[in-house]
Design a protein around this nucleic acid. Sequence first.
DNA 1: ATAACATATGAAAAAGTGTTCATATGAAAA
DNA 2: TTTTCATATGAACACTTTTTCATATGTTAT
Lengths: 132, 132
Amino acid sequence: MMIESEKLVVYAPGGSIPAGECDSAHEHPDMQALRQMLPPEERLDDLAELYKIFGDTTRVKILYALLEAEMCVCDIAALLSMTQSAISHQLRVLKQTKLVKSRRSGKTVFYSLADEHVRTILSMGMEHLEEN
Amino acid sequence: MMIESEKLVVYAPGGSIPAGECDSAHEHPDMQALRQMLPPEERLDDLAELYKIFGDTTRVKILYALLEAEMCVCDIAALLSMTQSAISHQLRVLKQTKLVKSRRSGKTVFYSLADEHVRTILSMGMEHLEEN
DNA sequence: ATAACATATGAAAAAGTGTTCATATGAAAA
DNA sequence: TTTTCATATGAACACTTTTTCATATGTTAT
């Protein structure tokens, strides 16, 4: 039976992270090294948040429409056969995440893509789909 | 007052789509043309589904780990300090969507990226974050 | 001012997603 | 064969997200 002291591991000075591999017999990657190669957790969270925005049909449709032309809210709603309110809510999300921008002209508000990066990201995804 | 017949529109043969723009006074994009430029709805749904997969912290972390090395389930669980079950569930999602593949060696199952496309998609996202 | 209209927004309903827990499966070792 | 271990999976629960509905805001025309 294993005694308690055998479980102890001397950590790096400053108090660091346990090796954290499972105790299976096979070869494990160097966990310590691996942890250092990974981007910081917060960065990965941000990345997931970004993709989450693209991960909704309504938003993807809006973005694709805006690839072609600047449009007002009611035109987008008509195009997608959805309510003005639903579209407006999603446009707010897209604006908050800096994927679209808006300009007001009288009563109407026109939306357009904030930058060309959106096009690239959408294309990447489409390419992946086509190669499958 | 507008009479009923004025509302009628002659649609293309086969029964097609209403112009569907809002009745605001400003210029509208050519809705008919726009609809034809957009990818079919099903394709956009698939695209959103793909991004949805990347839109979760756990899955993004798993993918980033697998960029560096093939790993077994328990190592990933240890690396992310999550339960084996949670990781296994997510690996199933990633496998179903063809983003990772697995090979069995005795009791352990090793997971790795299905193709290099994953790397590209993740990089695109990261680039966008950095430029903001 | 008041009416008309495009858009925005809060709250609740409706739908969907991720983790946990308990347990099943599959493979090797005893 | 029985035990042990790594992984998989179904169901329940907690948590998010999206849409709807009612209504507010902001702008123009009357």
